[in-house]
């Protein structure tokens, strides 16, 4: 077992434990903290994959901005422990079945079909940040410009939604 494999299993276990903890925790703030653990573990996996820029963006945007927004809203709304009715507890069993079936099917299908991917030559050291910036500002420049429009619309939408109506 190589060092990379050990690091992978540690980070993968951390991510899965965080995701399970998100489900098991009763209070939304604990779920939010569990999700942060998942995101940091995924950032570590991105580093292991050689995607340094994506790892940094994952920490800054997901772990920083988005999760702070979540925690902020949880505190703002003073969210309490979630309550389950008997019907919603019954939804757990078929939900679990569905989720296991879905994950198993996806994993089995993709694991079978990645044999060709495995055989492909791995370039290993690619200058990822330089390459990404080249792709964003050359090949994907129109989608990139469209994302700024998307963010503008999102900011306007959030402002209009959250403002108090004038009486």
């Amino acid at each position: 077992m190589t060092a990379a494999l050990v690091v992978f299993f540690v980070l993968a276990a951390l991510a899965v434990i965080g995701a399970v903890s998100l489900i098991l925790q009763k209070h939304p703030i604990h779920s939010a903290l569990s999700l942060i653990v998942v995101m940091v573990a995924l950032a570590g996996l991105y580093l292991l994959l050689g995607a340094e820029f994506v790892a940094a963006v994952q920490i800054i945007v997901y772990g920083g901005a988005i999760m702070v927004l979540f925690v902020f809203v949880i505190m703002l709304l003073n969210a309490g422990v979630e309550e389950h009715t008997s019907i919603s507890k019954m939804a757990g069993a078929p939900g679990l079945l569905l989720a296991v079936a879905l994950a198993g099917f996806v994993a089995a299908t993709i694991a079978k079909s990645t044999e060709s991917v495995q055989a492909a030559p791995q370039t290993g050291e690619i200058a990822s940040t330089l390459g990404i910036s080249n792709m964003i500002f050359k090949d994907f420049v129109y989608p990139f410009e469209l994302t700024s429009f998307l963010i503008l619309v999102a900011v306007l939408g959030a402002t209009v939604l959250a403002q108090r109506e004038k009486s």
């Binding site: 939010a32 996996l45 757990g92 939900g95 993709i110």
Partner: peptide, 26 residues
């Protein structure tokens, strides 16, 4: 394969949480 299987597991946990949880923020 390992990464893809981990991805599928996390996605499945996300689907389950989506169905099971009752708090809108969660």
């Amino acid at each position: 394969n390992y990464y893809v299987i981990l991805s599928a597991i996390l996605f499945g946990l996300g689907v389950f949480a989506f169905i099971f949880k009752r708090n809108i923020i969660t």
